[in-house]
Write a protein that binds this DNA or RNA. Structure first.
Length: 480
RNA sequence: GGUUCCGUCGUCUAGUGGUCUAGGACGUCUGGUUCUCAUCCAGAAAAUCGCGGGUUCGACUCCCGCCGGAAUCACCA
């Protein structure tokens, strides 16, 4: 397979959100699959929208997801620099070729004048095309003047790797701005120059650029260069409505999910499969499997709605997968920062044992914060939880107290505090007290945790330890 | 308004003329796993394949029209 050189070219205007990471994931997959390279390029030509620290944020996000690009800021490479503002002279150089060929000209028209033309068109209900107002005599271009492309309106047809064969008429072509008054190129021009110089083979970007493609084609033609393959990625849609998911619709940043305890494996898996599948019924893919199986021709042509519930489901799958396949220690190493405040003074060993009995209840790692409190601090005794419990409300307080005392006596006699011995003791207790599991176990479970739910009783007892378990049972017995 | 794209269960999707009385997954519901919650397992409901015409022995699949949705028309990317 031909080695693909792909790129992710965000502008540093803020965080990467789930609506736009996919245009980093797919190029990465394609590059790795073919043994090629992925380049990270920062498109910072819009000074007004530049956000301090955004580049770092972008890099953090990619690193967390496991997308290791081959060339870019910091790490460098053969095609630098990777900030467009540092490539100014490259654009000017290419622009001069266009000027020399008579395919670009300095635009002397003031923004006000252009607005007036536009207004005139609006009034007459005709589309505004700058080329219809192209000045006869234009000054020689020099920095500080906007430079426009001199288009040659005609039909264009091309192939998009996702959307298929495309064709448009001359009405979509216009004299677009190549270089702005501030001396920096527009996206429209800059990306063409950069992609050419960097040897990009696949331009993978959102479909919003599909309708601009003929204008790019005209520039490639005027420059006498081949265009890379066009790969238009359909939008990810917001949960509500039919709009593409954007910050305005509350699209969360990728790092926000990280902080909420979503695993990068799950995020990558979910996003890669939103609008792509390999035709099989597989749902869970590792990064390596994605690299191996991804194919551009199976990218969906229509937009896909973002479904956080499914992401969370997938996260649960990944939490279990890591614990079951790599071991509980591997999962534990991911949990730093997700434990409740009260867990701070406890050992890794203890927390690992808590994790081992609770992990299959986790949707996100941050669930640990709300689900494990009673393992680290004594719960507040709330008798109403026992008295009003659906299995226990038929008993009098005296009966409850008696049951508790028998439980304490039984458990006190357990020598080997392990899950099997505890289960045996619990079973004996069941027989001796002639109670149903629902009754006895609910009482003990509640007395131990006062939590709406907890792991299997014998496991909870085991992890809590003998002393603590008996102390809590005694405390409840005394309170009744 | 011009141009372009898109249209299969609520959602993500399989499906490339007959194997589709349309398959899988999430979600929902039911049952099981000695309490709870979750996991796991079993099962159910859920798509007249946007609509209308063709072509064909036969159409979710091909063609045309319509409707609906989206994107784009910046000295933003």
């Amino acid at each position: 397979m031909e080695k693909a050189i792909t790129r992710f070219a965000p502008s540093p205007t803020g965080y990467i959100h789930i609506g736009n990471v996919r245009s980093a994931i797919y190029p990465y997959l394609v590059a790795k699959q073919t043994g090629g390279k992925m380049i990270l390029r920062i498109e910072d030509t819009d000074q007004a929208r530049y956000v301090e620290g955004a580049t770092e944020l972008i890099e953090d996000t990619l690193k967390w997801l496991g997308i290791d690009w081959d060339e870019g800021p910091i790490i460098g490479g053969d095609h630098g620099p990777y900030f467009q503002t540092e490539r100014k002279e490259h654009y000017v150089e290419w622009a001069k070729k266009l000027i020399a060929a008579g395919r670009a000209y300095a635009d002397p028209t003031s923004p006000e004048q252009i607005e007036a033309y536009r207004e005139e068109c609006r009034k007459n209900n005709v589309p505004f095309l700058y080329r219809n107002y192209r000045p006869e005599n234009t000054p020689e271009w020099e920095p500080g003047m906007p430079l426009r492309f001199k288009t040659d309106p005609k039909d264009y047809s091309w192939h998009d790797e996702v959307m298929g064969d495309m064709k448009t008429g001359p009405e979509v072509l216009d004299d677009i701005i190549l270089i702005k008054k501030d001396g920096l190129p527009t996206y429209n021009f800059a990306h063409i120059v950069d992609d050419a110089e960097m040897g990009i083979t696949h331009i993978m970007r959102g479909v919003e650029y599909l309708s601009s493609t003929p204008n790019y084609l005209a520039i490639y033609e005027a420059l006498g260069i081949e265009h890379p393959k066009f790969v238009s990625l359909p939008h990810i849609l917001a949960p509500q409505g039919n709009k593409k998911l954007g910050k305005r619709d509350g699209a969360k940043s990728v790092t926000e999910y990280r902080d909420d305890g979503v695993l990068p494996e799950a995020m990558l898996n979910y996003l890669a499969c939103l609008g792509w599948n390999d035709g099989s019924e597989q749902e869970i893919y590792t990064k390596d499997e994605l690299i191996e199986k991804f194919s551009i021709d199976r990218i969906q042509t229509s937009g896909a709605r973002y479904d956080e519930v499914k992401l969370l489901w997938m996260n649960g799958q990944w939490i279990r997968r890591i614990a079951d396949e790599e071991g509980i220690d591997a999962l534990y190493s991911r949990t730093a920062g997700f434990w409740p405040e009260s867990a701070k003074s406890y050992s890794d060993e203890y927390k690992t044992s808590v994790l081992s009995i609770i992990y299959d209840r986790l949707k996100t790692l941050s669930d640990l914060r709300t689900m494990t409190n009673y393992f680290f601090e004594d719960p507040t005794i709330d008798l109403s939880q026992i008295i009003d419990n659906k299995f226990l409300k038929k008993f009098s307080e005296a009966e409850i107290e008696d049951l508790l005392k028998k439980s304490i006596a039984k458990l006190s006699g357990v020598e080997n505090w392990d899950e099997n011995t505890l289960q045996d003791a619990l079973n004996e207790l069941l027989a001796e007290t002639e109670k149903k599991p629902a009754e006895l176990f609910s009482l003990i479970r509640l007395s131990l945790s006062f939590a709406p739910f907890s792991p299997a009783l014998n496991l909870t007892l085991k992890v809590l330890g003998k002393d603590l378990s008996l102390a809590r049972l005694n405390a409840v017995a005394r309170t009744i």
